[in-house]
Design a protein around this nucleic acid. Structure first.
Length: 808
RNA sequence: GGGCGCAUAGCUCAGCGGGAGAGCGCUCGCUUCACACGCGAGAGGUCCCUGGUUCAAUCCCAGGUGCGCCCACCA
C-alpha cells in the first residue's frame, strides 16, 4: 500500500455515510436526556464559504461531535438569511448587466426575479459546510423567508407595536443613493479617501467689519452643499470671530444671506475655524440646526443628484455641481484655496456607494426598555461572551444603545405589517386587517418598506424552532447552549437575539457566545475578495483535506487577529498521515497469544492519554481550542508514535501487546475525532466494522484506564536517560523494564557513541549549582508554593544522581 | 477621538511569576522492515524600550514606541 494517507475520497465517503445513516440528525446516538444545542449563524443565502465560516464551522463541529460522543441529545440546525440589501444588490447588478433595472421591472416582478435567482444559484453554502465535515442536521434547513418564518417576523413586529416601542420619525439617516434606502450606522463602512478641501469666502452682508475684514472663510469638502447652507457657525471661544457673531454673511452661488452663529461643536483648529451649516446633509449640522431653530434645506435627492431646490444645478451629479460651484467661486474671486485632504467617508458596505446623509421618514424601535432585561442577563452572566473582553464590550453596547431604524426602502425582505387609511391612521395587525383600527375605513394601503435584515435574524433561535407555535422542538431545544461568531456582529446580531429571546420566550437563547479570531491574509491585511487577499477554504481543503484544514484553523483560533499560516494546515496534514501510518503498523502484524501483565510503556501510554484527555476536555469546556490541538499533536507524534510504538514494535507479534496497542489507539481516535473526524473514522472502521452504532461519530467515551502517575514518572526517567545518552553516550541507571524500553527506542547499536560527555557534565554541574542556590534561599523556601519547592528538591536530587552516574 | 488586542527563534504562533517552546525553514547524520510527507542530532532569542512591585519578572503594574482590528458626526 502507498505509505501516504490520501484524504480525498475518504472524506467525501464518510460525509455521505454519516448523513445517510442519519448520524447528523438531532438526537442521533443520544444516551441521556441532556440536550446540547448550537445556534448557527445563518449565512447569506447567496454567500459562498469563506475562511471565517470555515473556522467557525470547525469550532462548532468540534463541540457538536464532542457532546454527541458524550451521549447528549444534540441539535445543530442549519439555515440561510435572506440578507435583504446584500441579495437585492446582487440581483440589481445582474439586471444592470442586462441593461434593465428593478424600477423597470416593478416590485412584483423584481421579487419574483430574486426568487428565481436564489433557486438557480442560492443556498449552495451548506454543500460546502458538508465538505468541511460539519455535522449539521441538514434535513432541518430553515430560511428567513420561509412562510413559517415570515409568520414569526410579522407576529414579533406586532408584538413590539403592542408594547409601544415602535414609532415613526423624520431624522437624518444614512442614505445609500444606489439602493435608495436608509441603512443603519452599523452597515456604513468608513473608508479613507483623498478629497479636496475648498476654502470659500462668504462676504459680510452689511459690508466690512469694524476691523476692515470683508468676508469670512469656511472650509468644505463638498462645495455643492453650499446651496443648502442656512448659517455659518464658529466656536464661541474663538477670538478671531467674536465680532462676526450675530452678523450675516452671504452664501456664495445662491447669494443668500445667512446668520453667523456660535456653537461649541465647531472645532477651532479645523480648516478656517468657521463651519458652514447644512442641516439637510450633515449629521453635525443637523444637530446644530435643530438647536438653533434653523430651517433645513434639502438640495440633494434620494438618487444622490441635485434636486429642484438646487435651481439651475438640478439634475446634476454632486461632482458636476461641485465643479460649477467652484467655478462660480473662482469667477467671483471668492475661492481662497483648494488643498488636498485625506479623510474618512461613509460608504454602503454592500455597494460601496458614498453615503448621503438625508432627512427621511423612518420607523424606529425604541431600545432602552427592551435592552434592560438583556443587560441584566449579561451582568448576571446568564449569558457569557468568551473571551471576557468581548463580554464587557457587549455590556457597554447595551448600556448606550441608540434606537433602531428598522425600515428599509428595499423590495426584497419582510414588508412591514403596517397599513395606512386615507386619513393617515396607522393600523398594525397580523394577519392583515380588514379595516382601519381607528376609523374603520376599508381603504387601506400597506407600507411599502421592508424590515432591516437583522430584524428577522434577531429571531433566529426561536423562529427556527417554530415560534410563535409552541412546537415540541421549541419545548425541547430552547434555550440552546452555544453561539459562535465573529466580533463585528455582536451588536448587529448577538445582543439582539438575547433581548428578543427574553422578550418572547422569557429566557436567554443560549448561555455562551464564542467570539472567534479573525483570520487575516498572510500579509496581515484583511481577507477580502475586492482586495484580492481572499483565500478560498475549499481550495485549502482540496489541497490538504478537510481534517487538516480543521486542525490548522483551530490552531489559528487563539488570538483576536491571526495571520493565515499555511504551515498550521500542513501540520494537520502531517498528523493525519502519521496516525494513519501508525495504525497500519498496529494492524499489519499477525499476533500469537502470549499471556503477561501490562508492561511499563503500556501503563504509561494509557495514563498519558487519560491525562491529555482531561486537559483537552477542560480546555474545550472553556472554549479554548488552539492549545488543545497542539497537545494532541504532541501526544500522537511524540508519545504514541516515537516512544510507545517504537518500544512495543519488537513485540507486536504478541497478542497481548497488540490488544493493548489497539485499545490505546482507540482512545486516541476518540480524543482526536472532534478535531479530525474523517481520518479517525477511517481507521476506527477497520476494527469496528458492523452497525452504525460502531461509528466513531456516536461512539461512547470510555472511563479512564485507571493507570498511575507513578508510571508517568518512571517513563520520564527513561526519556531523560535517552536524552543524556544521545548527547554523551552514557546510560544512567535504569530498572530492567526501563532499560528494555530504552534499548528498543534508542537502539544503541545505531546511535552515535562519540557524543560529548564533558558537555553533559558541565550542563549538569550548572543545574546542580542553580538548584542548590535556590534551595539555600530562605525567602524562596518560605514564600514559594510547597509543590514548587518540592519539585526543585526532586530536580536537584535527580541532577546529582545523574552527575554521579556520569562522572563515576 | 473612544474601545479592544498584539509585540517571544528567519516566518506563523504557543507559554504568562521559579530551568526560553512548537510547526515551517536552515545545518549535519541515517534506505531503522508504519511513515524519507520519516527518524535522530544541531544552529538560531538583550522574550519591543524605560521604570516599578517581588527573594525571584518574558509573565504582574505604570509610562513609552510600533502595529492590527472595531466603534465614532472634525466640516
Amino acid at each position: 500500500m502507498e505509505p501516504l494517507y490520501k484524504p480525498h475520497g475518504v472524506e467525501e465517503r464518510w460525509q455521505r455515510t454519516w448523513e445517510e445513516e442519519g448520524l447528523y440528525a438531532a438526537g442521533a446516538g443520544a444516551r441521556h436526556d441532556k440536550t446540547f444545542v448550537i445556534c448557527v449563524p445563518p449565512p447569506n443565502v447567496t454567500g459562498a464559504l469563506h475562511m471565517g465560516h470555515a473556522l467557525n464551522g470547525s469550532i462548532q463541529d468540534l463541540l457538536m461531535r464532542w457532546h454527541r460522543m458524550r451521549g447528549f441529545d444534540t441539535l445543530w440546525q442549519p439555515g440561510y438569511d435572506h440578507a435583504g440589501i446584500a441579495t437585492q444588490n446582487v440581483v440589481e447588478k445582474q439586471l444592470a448587466l442586462e441593461g434593465t433595472s428593478r424600477k423597470e421591472l416593478g416590485r412584483e416582478a423584481f421579487v419574483e426575479r430574486v426568487w428565481e435567482h436564489l433557486d438557480a444559484t442560492g443556498k449552495t453554502i451548506m454543500g460546502q459546510f458538508r465538505r468541511l465535515g460539519a455535522s449539521m442536521d441538514y434535513g432541518r434547513e430553515r430560511f428567513t423567508m420561509d412562510d413559517a418564518y415570515i409568520e414569526a417576523v410579522m407576529r414579533f413586529f406586532v408584538h413590539l407595536w403592542e408594547r409601544g416601542w415602535l414609532y415613526r420619525a423624520n431624522r437624518l439617516v444614512n442614505w445609500c443613493p444606489f439602493h435608495e434606502t436608509a441603512i443603519s450606522d452599523l452597515e456604513v463602512q468608513h473608508v479613507e479617501v483623498d478629497d479636496a478641501l475648498t476654502y470659500a469666502r462668504y462676504p459680510f452682508a452689511d459690508g466690512p467689519l469694524a476691523d476692515g475684514r470683508a468676508s469670512l472663510t469656511i472650509a468644505t469638502v463638498r462645495p455643492a452643499t453650499i446651496l443648502g447652507d442656512v448659517a455659518v457657525a464658529v466656536n464661541p471661544d474663538d477670538e478671531r470671530y467674536r465680532d462676526a457673531i450675530g452678523k450675516e454673511v452671504v452664501a456664495p452661488f445662491v447669494e443668500r444671506p445667512v446668520p453667523v452663529i456660535a456653537d461649541a461643536r465647531v472645532e477651532k483648529e479645523f480648516g478656517s475655524g468657521a463651519l458652514k451649516v447644512t442641516p439637510g446633509h450633515d449629521a453635525v449640522d443637523f444637530g446644530i440646526g435643530a438647536d438653533h431653530g434653523l430651517p433645513t434645506l434639502t438640495v440633494i435627492g434620494p438618487d444622490g443628484r441635485m434636486n429642484e431646490t438646487a435651481g439651475e444645478l438640478a439634475g446634476l451629479t454632486q461632482e458636476e455641481a461641485d465643479e460649477r460651484v467652484v467655478a462660480w467661486l473662482t469667477e467671483h474671486d471668492q475661492l481662497e484655496k483648494r488643498e488636498s485632504y485625506r479623510h474618512s467617508v461613509g460608504t454602503c458596505e454592500r455597494c460601496h456607494t458614498r453615503i448621503e446623509p438625508l432627512i427621511s421618514l423612518q420607523w424606529w424601535c425604541a431600545m432602552e426598555e427592551p435592552a434592560r432585561p438583556a443587560l441584566d442577563a449579561l451582568r448576571e452572566r446568564r449569558v457569557r461572551y468568551h473571551p471576557e473582553s468581548q463580554h464587557q464590550f457587549a455590556i457597554r453596547s447595551f448600556e448606550e444603545i441608540p434606537d433602531w431604524n428598522i425600515s428599509r426602502q428595499l423590495w426584497w425582505g419582510h414588508q412591514q405589517p403596517l397599513w395606512y387609511c386615507p386619513d393617515g391612521h396607522v393600523t398594525c395587525t397580523w394577519p392583515p386587517p380588514e379595516a382601519c383600527a381607528e376609523c374603520g375605513s376599508a381603504e387601506l394601503e400597506r407600507d411599502p418598506d421592508v424590515l432591516d435584515t437583522w430584524f428577522s435574524s434577531a429571531l433566529w433561535p426561536c423562529a427556527t424552532l417554530g415560534w410563535p407555535e409552541r412546537t415540541p422542538e421549541l419545548e425541547r431545544y430552547y434555550p440552546g447552549n452555544v453561539n459562535s461568531t465573529a466580533r463585528e456582529i455582536i451588536r448587529l446580531w448577538e445582543n439582539r437575539m438575547i433581548w428578543t429571546g427574553l422578550e418572547v420566550m422569557e429566557e436567554v437563547p443560549f448561555t455562551d457566545v464564542i467570539i472567534h479570531s479573525t483570520i487575516l491574509a498572510a500579509d496581515g491585511r484583511r481577507m477580502s475578495k475586492s482586495l484580492g487577499t481572499g483565500l478560498d477554504p475549499l481550495d485549502v481543503i482540496a489541497k490538504y483535506g478537510a481534517d487538516a484544514t480543521r486542525y490548522g484553523l483551530l490552531k489559528m483560533s487563539s488570538t483576536q487577529d491571526v495571520r493565515f499560516a499555511e504551515g498550521a494546515i500542513e501540520e494537520g496534514r502531517k498528523l493525519a498521515n502519521k496516525l494513519w501510518n501508525v495504525s497500519r503498523l498496529l494492524l499489519s502484524k499477525r499476533a500469537e497469544p502470549v499471556s503477561r501483565p501490562q508492561s511499563l510503556e503500556e501503563r504509561w501510554i494509557l495514563a498519558r492519554i487519560d491525562a491529555v484527555r482531561a486537559e483537552v476536555e477542560e480546555a474545550w469546556a472553556q472554549f479554548d481550542f488552539s492549545p488543545s490541538v497542539q497537545v494532541l499533536y504532541r501526544l500522537i507524534f511524540d508519545d504514541f508514535c516515537d516512544w510507545y510504538a517504537e518500544a512495543i514494535k519488537p513485540r507486536l507479534g504478541e497478542s497481548e501487546v497488540r490488544a493493548t496497542a489497539l485499545a490505546a489507539l482507540e482512545r486516541l481516535l476518540l480524543l482526536l475525532h472532534p478535531v479530525m473526524p474523517h481520518v479517525t473514522e477511517e481507521i476506527w472502521s477497520q476494527f469496528h466494522v458492523d452497525s452504525p452504532l460502531g461509528r466513531l461519530i456516536v461512539a461512547e467515551w470510555p472511563e479512564a484506564a485507571g493507570t498511575h502517575a507513578a508510571d508517568l514518572h518512571a517513563f520520564d526517567r527513561v526519556q531523560e536517560a535517552a536524552a543524556i545518552f544521545r548527547r554523551s553516550g552514557v546510560v544512567v541507571e535504569l530498572e530492567d523494564d526501563e532499560l528494555r524500553i530504552f534499548a528498543a527506542v534508542v537502539r544503541p547499536e545505531r546511535a552515535k557513541t562519540n557524543g560529548n560527555a564533558e558537555a553533559e557534565l558541565a550542563r549538569l554541574r550548572v543545574e546542580v549549582e542553580r538548584g542548590e542556590r535556590m534551595l539555600a534561599n530562605e525567602k524562596f523556601v518560605a514564600n514559594a508554593k510547597p509543590d514548587v519547592v518540592e519539585a526543585e528538591r526532586e530536580k536537584l536530587a535527580r541532577y546529582r544522581r545523574e552527575l554521579d552516574a556520569l562522572s563515576g
